[in-house]
């Protein structure tokens, strides 16, 4: 889902920078309120864990494998603010260390994978967890990836540099990721189930304060 430099028009990239900058700014403020100045950096330990977990190859039918994106899981585990901050670290390091995405396109990648993915995953899980917890985790993973793909499709389709029409890019991104999202949803539900069974105290909504600052931080 990483957009490289060259796909977006400068004004589209600028809008994405504005959106992700505002969201990350709010997330930083709320994270400092929740964790304090001293403990906020420890969020990086969890972010590094999510990054490493993305390397795990999950078998899927047809002899191939898929990777975990983890935005929805970060939202479920850490809550929206800390989740956005953790995934911001993951996406920024993917770009600046491993060369995934682009320099100017980093704002768009942050917006899709660190903001939309986390917030949609969190919102869907929160809305549905009283009906069925694992189902809510699945829906969060699937919906988050699909909506992130929608955002990428809109960004790329709105750019004159990319010759395909908006309708085409959105359709291809959404349909493709709605299918791939089934795997992300299944991984999110599987990992959520395991963590919730082993450490129910860590899971959002299972503690009185509803804050994620208990996640080792």
């Amino acid at each position: 889902m990483h957009i490289p430099d060259g796909f977006l028009d400068p004004w589209v990239a600028g809008l994405f920078w504005l959106g992700s900058g505002a969201a990350v700014g709010v997330a930083i403020k709320r994270a400092r309120d929740e964790l304090g100045d001293e403990r906020t950096p420890l969020l990086g330990v969890v972010a590094a864990g999510i990054f490493a977990a993305q390397m795990l190859n999950w078998p899927i039918p047809g002899g191939t494998s898929a990777h975990f994106v983890g935005g929805a899981f970060a939202g479920i585990l850490l809550g929206p603010s800390l989740g956005v901050l953790a995934m911001t670290a993951v996406v920024a390091i993917q770009a600046l260390v491993f060369g995934d995405g682009g320099i100017i396109a980093l704002g768009a990648n942050l917006f899709a994978m660190a903001v939309v993915d986390v917030l949609v995953g969190y919102a869907l899980f929160r809305a549905c967890r009283n009906v069925h917890e694992s189902g809510a985790a699945f829906l969060a993973g699937w919906g988050a990836v699909t909506l992130s793909a929608f955002v990428v499709g809109v960004g790329v389709g709105a750019s004159s540099a990319f010759a395909y029409e908006l309708g085409t890019t959105v359709t291809i991104m959404v349909v493709g990721h709605a299918l791939l999202g089934v795997v992300e949803g299944a991984i999110t539900a599987a990992v959520y189930g395991y963590v919730a069974d082993a450490r129910p105290d860590l899971v959002l909504g299972r503690r009185d304060d509803e804050h994620a600052s208990g996640v080792g931080l």
């Binding site: 330990v45 963590v195 082993a198 080792g216």
Partner: peptide
């Protein structure tokens, strides 16, 4: 993945 993430949180 579950064991790994629990170890991560424990290290945190």
């Amino acid at each position: 993945a579950g064991t790994f993430l629990l170890r991560t949180l424990d290290r945190g």
